[in-house]
């Protein structure tokens, strides 16, 4: 079955008074994707998301969502999108319930009491429905922000850094919720983040952007499991260890500056052999830390 594109971005540019925030981004998100939108802070993620949500106008380029041009059919597109853009700011002077009721209405639905309570339950805020949003903690605001993105049952959900500022428990909850939305409710999700790990755990496809341009795009598993990897091996005898490895024909092995670690670039399937050779050569392996190249690459960006 042909994959159906939900978001198609072509040659998207945005410049503010001489500063180019986005410089020709191209990406495609397909139906059913959990799409990781990665990039360090300031890479242009938020600018791109704001353009997708029509909060700002592109300088040039084209955004198609559900096959329609955003610039031409903004309202009918937005009807089917739910989004958190940056911080989840809602009306602090109103309750979570009222926020959802009003925003739901504005999204073109007539929110029922049951509907609102269901969404609040989904994000774990059912018992705080009538509390004013200004009394909420950051984590709760993040969740009510998620609720407003879901209130009108959109096909596409855009989440801009949804786990920022959350404690590890909160991060896990959001991650589970994203997986649930994807698997059980079959939503298409675009998830932006500056943490590769976060995306890796939930996304099937991703793009990494840097300085307003796409650096890498593809399938998450493929990208992360490319054979080349960088391994740091801590051994009991560094000199001997390096020798053993070099004897296996891996001339790129080098010492870590700290002194007792060996750093080398290998393909994934070589690791087991190296480990065995070290032990057979009488070198105790204290630890092995594999670092995938993408991860290294990404860390260098951030």
């Amino acid at each position: 079955m042909e994959k159906q594109p939900v978001i198609e971005i072509r040659d998207l540019y945005k410049s503010y008074k001489g500063f180019d925030a986005v410089k020709g981004i191209n990406l495609t998100v397909y139906k059913g994707d959990v799409f990781g939108f990665l990039g360090p802070n300031g890479a242009g993620k938020s600018t791109t998301i704001r353009m997708m949500m029509s909060l700002i106008k592109p300088t040039s380029g084209e955004i198609r969502i559900f096959g329609k041009l955003l610039s031409e059919e903004r309202e009918s597109i937005l009807r089917k999108i739910g989004a958190i853009v940056e911080k989840p700011d809602l009306y602090g002077f109103m309750s979570a319930y009222d926020n959802l009721r009003l925003l739901g209405k504005m999204s073109g639905i007539q929110p029922t009491h049951a509907g609102i309570m269901d969404v609040l339950e989904l994000v774990g805020l059912k018992d705080r429905a009538k509390s004013k949003v200004k009394t909420f903690s950051h984590g709760m605001k993040q969740r009510v922000g998620l609720a407003q993105a879901l209130i009108h049952d959109p096909e596409l959900i855009i989440l801009d850094e949804p786990t920022t500022g959350l404690d590890p428990q909160g991060m896990v909850e959001i991650r589970d919720l994203i997986l649930k939305l994807s698997k059980e409710y079959h939503k298409t999700i675009l998830l932006s983040s500056h943490i590769l790990n976060e995306v890796e755990l939930v996304a099937n496809r991703m793009v990494i952007i840097n300085k307003g341009k796409v650096a890498i795009e593809g399938d998450v598993k493929e990208l992360l499991n490319r054979d080349e990897m960088k391994v740091t091996i801590e051994v009991s005898d560094i000199t001997k260890g390096v020798e053993v490895i070099k004897n296996r024909g891996l001339s790129n092995a080098m010492r870590d500056t700290a002194g007792n670690k060996i750093i080398l670039h290998i393909s994934q399937n070589e690791m087991a052999g190296i480990n065995r050779a070290l032990i057979e050569g009488g070198v105790d392996v204290v630890s092995v830390v594999p670092l995938r190249t993408l991860e290294e690459y990404f860390l260098n960006l951030t």
Partner: peptide, 14 residues
């Protein structure tokens, strides 16, 4: 100031 334009102007309303 409240950042609520981000939820308001992403609704399907011109």
């Amino acid at each position: 100031a409240g950042g609520t334009f981000r939820v308001l102007l992403t609704r399907p309303v011109s």
